[in-house]
């Protein structure tokens, strides 16, 4: 595929615009304005945790394999932080599945997994919002005819203004890169 891509770029004479240099500030997720609903039925925006450091990821609750592991991984990151960092951290779990992951279904996930919803939110978004959020987080996903989703599992760390400062595809244990991003003010 890479060779093919190179030939595409040569043939068209165009690449994508050169991405901003490393010194430019990371784009803020909060520039995406979406109306979302949390597990308690409250209307929230992506910036519901503005002012905090945030871990954000996408999942769907009927998934048997990954989703328990995503929650375990987020908890593993939390455990590695010192107490003040952990108290300041917030977590957003955004569902790919608007049909089945109603706020009520998400509430049940939160209860069965003993999630502290004062610091974590499980988010229901409509199909168009899911598509935009996944695009902003650069998470590839695909709804299968069975109603399941194939998706990349990516945990992003956000700065207090929503800047996407780090992303991790590590599952099962705390990624050092995420810890660094959360630990350094």
């Amino acid at each position: 595929m890479k060779a093919l891509l190179i030939s595409v770029l040569l043939l068209t004479g165009q690449g994508a615009w050169a991405q901003s240099s490393a010194s430019a500030p990371a784009p803020s997720l909060y520039d995406l304005h979406e109306r979302l609903v949390d597990q308690d039925g409250a209307s929230v925006g992506l910036d519901v945790y503005r002012g905090h450091r945030v871990l954000v990821t996408m999942f769907y609750s009927s998934c048997q394999a990954t989703c328990p592991l995503i929650i375990d991984t987020l908890r593993a990151v939390e455990r590695k932080l010192d107490a003040p960092q952990r108290d300041g951290l917030r977590v957003l779990l955004i569902s790919f599945d608007p049909e089945r992951d109603t706020p009520k279904a998400l509430r049940e996930v939160a209860e069965s997994r003993h999630i502290d919803t004062r610091r974590w939110k499980l988010i229901h978004a409509d199909e168009a919002a899911v598509r935009r959020i996944a695009a902003a987080l650069d998470i590839q996903y695909r709804r299968l005819p069975s109603g399941e989703f194939n998706h990349a599992t990516v945990i992003s760390a956000l700065g207090t203004g929503g800047q996407m400062v780090e992303r991790s595809a590590v599952l099962g244990h705390a990624d050092e890169a995420l810890l660094r991003a959360l630990g350094n003010p």
Binding site: A65, R131, A134, Q140, L144, N150, A152
Partner: peptide, 12 residues
């Protein structure tokens, strides 16, 4: 659905 074009049909 440009965001679905790199996902395999059955990663499981």
């Amino acid at each position: 659905d440009v965001g679905s074009m790199m996902v395999s049909n059955d990663s499981r």
